[in-house]
Design a protein around this nucleic acid. Structure first.
Lengths: 352, 352
DNA sequence: GTGAAAGCGCTAACAT
DNA sequence: ATGTTAGCGCTTTCAC
């Protein structure tokens, strides 16, 4: 049963075993030099004899000595860790589960690794966004990337005003003191809607919570595309659906109860689109014959869905890189601009 | 265009702007006390006058002073950061994208936050698993959770032998020096297969790379269930499919080329199951009528799939908590045992 | 080329 | 109840 790694018959209170961590002084003693020399050798200084240097390096490696980064950082006042903060909805107590945000996390991990930075992940209550700065204030990270939907423009502005290096994944807003990196939501909404119009659809339902800046922009694109065809957006077709699992089905119910007829859906997330399609299918509605559907994010599984889901693709790899690049600008005290990345409509069977 | 946060017309070389970080000495000076007193006040020591304490606390809060964790850690020789290491396949250069592993990352984030720990995420080449210990060796973290498929038992044993506190998500193997937390893979494989047999299926294909310990155990469960019905496993029905996107379709092709007939599939990941189903659909094969399918992991999107995918559910929330709990045991020098968590078959339309 | 000594920001005896 | 001092593990002048 007990696959323990250490002694099993231990007395009542076990001293943490503190496997004495090797430190520079130890290497110095073993090499018969001072810590200064070891430090120099390890940092590749030329001010140290070739012979001693290799000897020290060898010793260190054979003993698997690794410099204590904490102490080094303290002394050098440097740091190569970036904070990634993922807000969670305190109301719904929702956990980190949205595939798109998780994908973003992966992309950030890759981008940071590429640049030799570590990633410290923190979760914060979306209602307390100012606590996103905690890892910065306490010196653990040199700056923060905030990912996730939010409606707390003001709190973010305050952080920026406090000079916290922070970059946010999201929409660019007026009066914004902080940097954002985001997809071109207006174009995304426009492309999706124009595509549906081009398929001959005229009553296009919009699924998404327009209180969220990104969604609001997609709605603007939606309206623009409609206007280009001389169609006035019907408010009854705009259904405020949350990011929760059952939102799609709920939205369908709401549309039906309102007695609305529609021949297409533009959903602001792929999850939403998928649950909506499932709800339609249960009602015997055929996709795309009767109702064409376009989602948003183009998560990996969108292409595996049945029917394969048309979706507005967010450039997630580029996003990770842009977020990191922008943050590094800020931390180096250079001015940085917000970035808007292109989005791309991926047409699949759900809408054609 | 330039939504910069700082001055825009900067000279050639900008000094990092170093917004002087407030430190304890500053608070002490402003409060007219010594740093010791500030330190005591902040740590809630009773050895400090009620009045001065509140004064200091107030001052610190109004100035948004936050103690420098790095310095504190160095002095206290403590640390509340845990490393989470995600191996990537160096051959395929695959990125962190598998929904299940991403979900595990989220679960770990939650579990660690609950316990007041920070999470440092690192990606390492799966062929160099010993570098998973780097964040520990350099003192950045008190221990490491390794998530992800792997076939590097030996390297992990070496790490454990070096006394690196490490817990691995995966299968429990003989001669294992390190702790694992994992689902009951044998039971998972058995349940899935028994369920398919109960549906009257007799030629059940097994999709998965049996070189991976977890998959091997699922295969054992598969064989056990077959044996219970007096059926000998047909090696031709075991197809070694990778974790890559197109693996499902490939596996289907392989089965067809081999001229194998089958009436069910047990796939070792939901992604695999989904792509297999799609390939079948393209060939006009009906699921579940002609071929019943069960996946593994029960990712969130499994229930949204069409047909909704039967799957063996891994207890992901419990997994995060167990991984953290086990790691903390180890870091406190206490012996810890590997944990096997129950799995559960979720039957949906793809198999009934 | 190498060592001694000071100090990064903090805490904990030890004094008072 | 508060201040003084030493030191966590490292780097870097400044001497030699």
């Amino acid at each position: 049963m007990n696959k323990s790694t250490t002694k099993s018959a231990v007395p009542e209170s076990v001293t943490p075993a503190q496997q004495q961590r090797l430190q520079m002084a130890d290497i110095a003693r073993l090499a018969g030099v001072s810590t200064s020399t070891v430090s120099r050798a390890l940092s590749g200084s030329t001010l140290v004899n070739e012979e001693t240097r290799t000897r020290i390096l060898e010793l260190a490696r054979s003993l698997k000595y690794s410099i204590n980064i904490g102490a080094q950082n303290l002394r050098l006042k440097q740091n190569r860790t970036v904070g990634v903060v993922v807000p969670y909805d305190s109301a719904t107590r929702q956990h980190l589960s949205d595939p798109f945000f998780l994908g973003m996390l992966g992309s950030l991990a890759d981008a940071l690794t590429e640049q030799g930075f570590d990633m410290l992940v923190t979760r914060v209550d979306a209602e307390q966004l100012d606590s996103a700065a905690a890892p910065f204030d306490s010196g653990r990270v040199i700056g923060v990337v905030l990912i996730g939907q939010w409606r707390h423009h003001d709190q973010l502005n305050q952080l920026a005003a406090r000079n916290v290096p922070i970059v946010v994944w999201g929409a660019q807003l007026p009066q914004q003191q902080y940097c954002t990196v985001g997809g071109d939501n207006v174009a995304g909404g426009r492309m999706a809607t124009a595509h549906l119009l081009a398929q001959g659809r005229r009553r296009i339902a919009f699924l998404g919570d327009v209180n969220m800046p990104e969604v609001a922009q997609r709605y603007r694109g939606y309206c623009e595309a409609l206007a280009a065809e001389g169609i006035a957006p019907d408010p009854a077709l705009q259904v405020s659906a949350s990011f929760l699992p059952e939102a799609g089905a709920q939205a369908m119910r709401q549309l039906h109860q309102g007695g609305q007829s529609f021949d297409a859906i533009f959903a602001c997330s792929d999850l939403l689109a998928m649950t909506a399609i499932n709800a339609l299918r249960q009602d015997g509605v055929q996709v795309p014959r009767q109702v064409a559907v376009v989602g948003y994010d183009d998560i990996e599984l969108a292409s595996y869905f049945h029917p394969p889901l048309s979706s507005v693709q967010q450039p997630i790899r580029a996003a990770g890189r842009a977020l990191v690049a922008t943050l590094l600008e800020l931390t180096e005290g250079r001015p940085a601009s917000s970035v808007q990345l292109p989005t791309q409509l991926i047409v699949r069977a759900s809408s054609s």
